[in-house]
Design a binder for these strands. Sequence first.
DNA 1: ATAGGGTTAACC
DNA 2: GGTTAACCCTAT
Length: 766
Amino acid sequence: MAPIRRREPTSRPWIAAIEALASSETDTSLLTDLVKKIPGEFREDEGKNARELVCWRILESLSLLQKGNSSTTLSKPDSSARFSLSDCCEDVLRKVQCRLPRANQKSTESVMSGRDVEAFVRDKRSCLPKSGLEKLKDVISKESDLIPFSVKEMSGLLKNNRSDGNATRPQRSASDTFENPLVGDLSSENATRPQRSASDAFENPPVGDLSSGKTVMSDSATANQGGSSAPNQLLVYKEYSNIASLNRKQDAFCAQKVVECKDSDSFNERRNVDHVPGTVVQHSGREESDLPREPRVENLREITTSDNVDYDRVASKKLKMSSTVGDAELLHNQLQDACNIEKITQGTSGKEHGLNIRADESIKDCEGFVELETRGGSARFVNQGTKSVDGSRENSEHGFSLTPNSVRCGEVKDTMEHDHQAEFLSDDENDEILIRNNTFLNSQYSHSQDSLATLNGTKKLCMVCKIGGQLLVCSSVSCQRMVHEKCMGVAPTFDAARSFYCPFCAYSQAISEYSESKKKLPLARKALVTFINRDEYRVRNSSNISHRADQNYLKESKLCNECVEQNRPENVGRREIENSSRKYMRDMPSVSHDSSSRERARDVTCGANEEDQYVASQAVQDSVLQNSKSKDKKIAHKQHVGTEKEQDVSNQPPVLPCEPAKTTHSNLAKSSGKKKKSVTHLSLRVRKGEQQYTYPSLPQLKRKKIPWSNAEEEALKEGVRKFASNHDRLMPWKTILEFGGDIFVNRTTIDLKDKWRNICKASPKV
DNA sequence: ATAGGGTTAACC
DNA sequence: GGTTAACCCTAT
């Protein structure tokens, strides 16, 4: 098994682009410039197709060149230079390179037949490998359900299926190629580049912004000035030397592929080219270093000497496996290395075993690609497919852009957005949302179980990073998600039994509870009304204030007990799950404030019968928890005043509904004989400032009407007289409120203001 | 914090 | 249905 070195993933898109450009008959100068620009290092097997395609393009260019200058170069037949289709383009190009006339050579010294090259290029065209992108396009275009429809749709290839599905490049006629080599069937993909003739292309090779290519341009221009074909050949040779730089980056590929060169002096001669006075080609030092040194090769497949070869690396690659086996195993390695997926079945040799790889859904589309291509028997395509797998993985890691996961993540977001809206929707709509949520989760389960479960059959992998290790396993029965704690992004949540629930399940659970709670809400509301009426009946029929206070105290104590009950560990544990879900959702902007709805859902999670008080107590508790400290202080003060003054109830919770005090106050009002009837109207009106926590599902409860007592009115008038300013129209209601603090019971500055308005309305002279 | 308009429910 | 008192909402 060939050792896999960690390489920079940034080289992959370069290779893919070069392949595609080489397939689309881009100018060779541009190709060679791109080759030189490939960043980082990569495996020797990577870029194999790219090299082949680029070399073929150069050979094609060379043959065109020779065709146009047939009278001067490569005209002498040489049986030794005939090429076989089994030769790779790179080898042939090296041979051609070795036989190119030097600047100080006469053309008659050439031993290369241009016809050989032309024939080779023509014949080779039919068996050139497709570029990775073309293959991917073919797979997408095929009616294969291995590629998700969404991916197909995104590819834009559903309607324009131009691919024949063959593993080799589309055939073109020789005349087409040689008459107009730069305008091929894929020229439209390179529409921005002007179409040029072959001679133009190679006498004035276009060089873009790629810095290193500028030299080529200058060389070309200089060569063109000479008007000789030899400089043109040197140009081609030089371009090939650029290709060699690709080889160097690929760790001794040169050593593996260097061809035999019988002309032992050719190297020195070539080197001398640069130093020949008056030579038309000027090479920079860098380019000189780029020149492939004299290949002293004894065996095409064995390591040979080369000045540019990294011997250490070459040594590790002396024996290259057969391409089939090697690539098949390479595929396996890459899949394990990059995707951490497990191979379910694998034979020991390449074509026959037909790798059956089950990947996670994030790479499932590419999995099919890999499988297809492997079975297709093209070992090279395995690499392409493997790269696609890597690429897919990158996609999945960097935004879920193209993988099926992205679609599902979109569904997640969509679902959650809808769930966020759930509180404003009808039950039917909520049911629909729940169905959608369940459907989504089921799909998640099915995918997960189909992939992850299978994958995890022998190895447990994190659902995020696809790496094993210490994983948290979701405790839900139907969920097999596992994740590293560090991959969670948020703190993991556990229930009372320290069972972990993944965010999906926690959220699903919260949604379910919310739905259940909503169904119980009407019953709870009805029970609440019944309870209040019953309590009011008792109040009305009681003549003993202290007894009522005891009743209130008992009632409040009961609520407090429920408070305590809520804080019991098991209940806290349950809430932790929900909190985790909320936290998780808060991290997702689209559902950020859905947490409050779920919290409210939790708050109304209560039974219909015995939990009528629960709703009220929750309102109280939340009011307590959510109120600002100042508010609490103020209200608590009022409560304290009221209870101390009128009820002598000392053990009340600091803040509770104003019913006790109001009831007492109502009785005081009743005792004053002013508004006796008002005591029977106990509509629940909760002031905004006193209960910031609202319940959308509950009707806006109105604060109980509290008629003003004579004492209150007098205190108000006194306060106005004392603090009203003739100059300032603003009335210091706060000061007045504090002034009559002992008299005003459960009044706010707004109440004072409103009451004063009513007083003024009734008797403006006041 | 305050003012002012609006709303609601009880009462006539 | 009109009136009224208490409460609510919003602008400043």
